[in-house]
Nucleic acid binder design. Structure first.
Lengths: 166, 166
DNA sequence: GAAATGATCGCGGGGATCTTTC
DNA sequence: ACGAAAGATCCCCGCGATCATT
């Protein structure tokens, strides 16, 4: 459970939507947001996405509309984290080059590990990635991560293939 | 202010709807619930798009995620065409500077009307726009178009305000 | 010498700023 | 001649190929 703060008026509005005595805020809000929330409700409670999310991503119009590989790179990383936070964290911790660290929660770590590493935040994630690398290295990073996260070879192939699609 | 308790999944969902860094829970919820309400109440015509499409666009995650003003510029133009093709065409025909033509169906027209006008195709549209201009001129172009399309001042203000959001 | 990794720097696009026109 | 509007040059910055290093 989490706690959020809302203004009094909004609170009254939500409370006014109660359908049975003792109904929880979550229950009311889920009903009000029903359309958007539907898919979320049927998912296992401790996982927000599965691997199909990753596959969908790399074939999506949005993804393919993005021409800059950095952005494709980062959105793949963001989705990988979403798929499995703990596996991602383990994989991220053991991924590095001879000098450079590739992923870290701390910008300093990445800055100190090399010159001009250009760390960027991975959205919806506590992690940052190094960005100053050529395409081959970006592929290496996502491939390594996926392998360490025990993602099937078939899916890894699809993702890397879509990654470089021009 | 009041505090409510919600489950983690729902919390994630709501947090994921954040449109601006630091946006409050109230703000997010109000938007989600307001849009929801509006859609239930207003559903009179069977048009493919109305002006609300434009408003939704400029508040959408996708739009705000795009930091380059050219791209915001072009997506607004694309939506304006979708909203009303004939009004758009009329407005486009009468919009130009002292030398430059701003919109045309023909690239040549735009190239010949000035130097380095950098015409770009407006997606889902038979039109092209010139792109080599500063922010003020881009605002001028969308403002003029919207005015000539008889869009309300209030909406024009919202669109131009969101356009330059950083 | 070859392969793997690092990081410099060339290239292109965006749009502020300078130039020109009205 | 002066200010405002419009045009378009060109600086800045990000991307990532290419070159340097291990």
């Amino acid at each position: 459970m989490k706690t959020i703060e809302i203004d009094d008026e909004l609170y009254q509005y939500i409370a006014g939507q109660t359908q049975h005595i003792g109904e929880s805020a979550s229950s009311i809000l889920r009903r009000l947001l029903a359309i958007e929330t539907k898919e979320l409700v049927i998912k296992p409670s401790n996982q927000l996405a599965d691997i199909s999310t990753l596959v969908k991503l790399v074939y999506s119009d949005n993804f393919l509309a993005e021409k800059k590989l950095v952005n494709r790179f980062i959105s793949i990383l963001s989705t990988l984290y979403l798929c499995n936070k703990s596996l991602f964290s383990v994989a991220a911790a053991s991924l590095h080059g001879s000098k450079r660290r590739y992923l870290a929660k701390n910008e300093e770590t990445l800055l100190r590990s090399g010159n001009n590493t250009k760390p960027k935040l991975i959205p919806d994630t506590p992690y940052m990635v190094i960005t100053n690398s050529n395409t081959a290295r970006k592929i290496y990073i996502i491939e390594s991560l996926m392998q360490n996260m025990a993602i099937s070879t078939h899916i890894i192939e699809q993702v890397t293939k879509q990654f470089v699609t021009k």
